[in-house]
Write a protein that binds this DNA or RNA. Sequence first.
DNA 1: CTGAAAGCGCTTACAG
DNA 2: CTGAAAGCGCTTACAG
Lengths: 344, 344
Amino acid sequence: MTDFKTLNSTQIAKLAGVSRSTVSKVINNYPDIPEKTKDKVRSVIAEYRYTPNASAQVLRGKPQAVIALYVYAGVDEVNQDSLCGLSSPYVMGVISNFVVAANNRGHRLMIELLRHEEDEQEIEHRVREHFDSKSIAGAVFLGLPETVSFIDNLTDEDFPIAVIDREVNDHGMALNIFTDDRYGGEMATEHLIANGFRHLLFIGGDMSKRSARKRAEGYVQAMKKHGLTPELLSGDFTEQCGTAAAERILARDSKPDAVVCASDIVAYGLIRTLQKLDNDYLHKMGIIGFDGSVHNDFQSPPLSSVKVDFAAMARATISSLLNPDSETDRVIPVTLEPRASSLR
Amino acid sequence: MTDFKTLNSTQIAKLAGVSRSTVSKVINNYPDIPEKTKDKVRSVIAEYRYTPNASAQVLRGKPQAVIALYVYAGVDEVNQDSLCGLSSPYVMGVISNFVVAANNRGHRLMIELLRHEEDEQEIEHRVREHFDSKSIAGAVFLGLPETVSFIDNLTDEDFPIAVIDREVNDHGMALNIFTDDRYGGEMATEHLIANGFRHLLFIGGDMSKRSARKRAEGYVQAMKKHGLTPELLSGDFTEQCGTAAAERILARDSKPDAVVCASDIVAYGLIRTLQKLDNDYLHKMGIIGFDGSVHNDFQSPPLSSVKVDFAAMARATISSLLNPDSETDRVIPVTLEPRASSLR
DNA sequence: CTGAAAGCGCTTACAG
DNA sequence: CTGAAAGCGCTTACAG
């Protein structure tokens, strides 16, 4: 078998009996090159499996076939032994689906951590440098809190950027990617009401995140529509939040008969705590989570959820990034996944 | 605020009143440059947040600060709506911990899918090209079946490569990364026996993977040591495998009183099926899984497991890749996580 | 239709 | 101690 050392265009040119210019033109499909020459060059390229040196192409101005996923990691989120932060079903759903979607469009996914303790100007400059040097063809930001502002400087420019679950200036060509959280909150609430529950509590959700606010908003709307009184026990998206909520609920005189949880993880925490402290109450309670984690089937009771279509999110985002069109907002659909936990 | 356009070394040189050569030498810490010159140049660099163009550096021979993670995806593994393949706790544990570990060493993680339908020579050539063009500083391979052979051509050379859970020629400087599966299998089995179980079955595991074979081997050893008869019901690492095993067990006359599952996911499938078909039997049964998924706490019953230390795996792998030492094998420790499912 | 030449932004012998 | 020049591997006006 031939030992395929990586060749350069000069060597390919020599083998094909043409100049480097011609090799390059064949690769970049210039017109005016006769089929015969093209064939000759192409067969040498195929034979030696020649691929142009990526860095050289980038240096010449061609963007690298790379999508960057910048994941903002807050305090403690780098801790891998829990269900929050980097290893939450939400982040994992985003990562794995973006890997596939990018791959389907011939791109690789580069994951870079943005740590809360980093200087914002530093971060902004790093991203800017990636774009200016054409190291990336597009960037996706995940988990940005509203307290960081560097993103607005970036979206002001014409960089192909998508921001998930965070409002940004929609100048430039920046894309807002949202899930249909208001509708999801409404749907979850309507579902519980339709199943006979009346005293519904909304639990958890980091209200600095748009998704949490919209999920709660949908809940409030639906409650009001039915003449019921909404009540929020907000917090964050973690298991601990569910645990704390369970304890607070048990200490109350009037207990809810159902809960809408801001995330599946919150529901897990709630369920686990109620299992220990008041299993009877747990099993009479209606519970629905958010995100549609693949683990919901394995809960006891199996957890109903509002499922986010991460595959669609990834496809739509990558596609918009690569083919910038007029749309600057994308709303990713959610669906109701009813399971035993929300049935009377 | 100054608008930080990305500058190049010529502009920095002009601003500092020196030549491009000197700027480069300051950046690369050449001796023979007097402190005074260094300070002058450094202050300009800091002021303008100058970073050398990565592609240009790569073209000159400096490896990019990127670790590539090549994830082999078999048939159906790109399907994101299940717990197998790309979205399994195992793969997710690897990905999220490698992102963090790479980041801690100043590198980014590039994830690239290797699809089973791709030509092996094509894959080999692509990886080779990444190394030859210095686009990556190291590569990690995950999920390679024993049927693919391109990896041996790659490890023969002096590329900084780590292969997880797959034996390779240890020529060159390739690293074998294994988890301590034999010991894990033994530990799981001993644990169940110590808790009074006797008729233990080993369920699942894709026997083309080293981890599955070693887990089973540890089980067999421990069983024999106690004069018990081992029995394997092998398959793969999926939920379906657990479901099928549950059905087969229920159809038998002599049923096991405990099972060692090749992965947590297999255990989930088993538990869910038994829950429906024979809940009493399920709750008398001893069950232990493998991997130490963060979701085990939320199972019913909470699932005992042999936990793999993915953070240690990521740290050790990245560190060896970046500082090649003499060691060519790494065994990642596992620990027993007993929960309710394995207690009588 | 084809090739020689310039240049992308660096780094590194080499000369002074 | 410092800078001019060559070259990494491409692509693209430009000349022929």
